[in-house]
Amino acid sequence: MSSVNFFDGLGQIDLSLIRDEDVAALDDTRREALEILIESVIAKGKATERHAAARKRVHEAMAFEDECLRLHREANPAPTELEALRAAQAAYRPS
């Protein structure tokens, strides 16, 4: 019984190892299953790349947000306790 080998030396799926003559020797059922497997492997590769790009984007966005927060705190410092107390007193002071 002929079969198709698509595992590399590390046990990972490598579609470049599939030979045309092996695929041609398959029956319809196995060929259809192999096509589905190839499509799913390609889809998983794209999903992996998308996930890696998204992680990189999150890391960059977090770093940029940290820098923006630092500049924002420098430009707009938080009120001191005394200022907050005075603001609260002013808010509750009957006018």
């Binding site: 794209k46 992996t48 998204a54 984007r57 999150v58 977090m62 947000e65």
Partner: peptide, 27 residues
Amino acid sequence: ETADARAELQAASSALRTAEKMEGSAL
């Protein structure tokens, strides 16, 4: 921008899990 990136990461993680399941099923 960070919120958008996190949402994209969530969607990408979900898509990756789905793709892994499909690949496992096909294999």
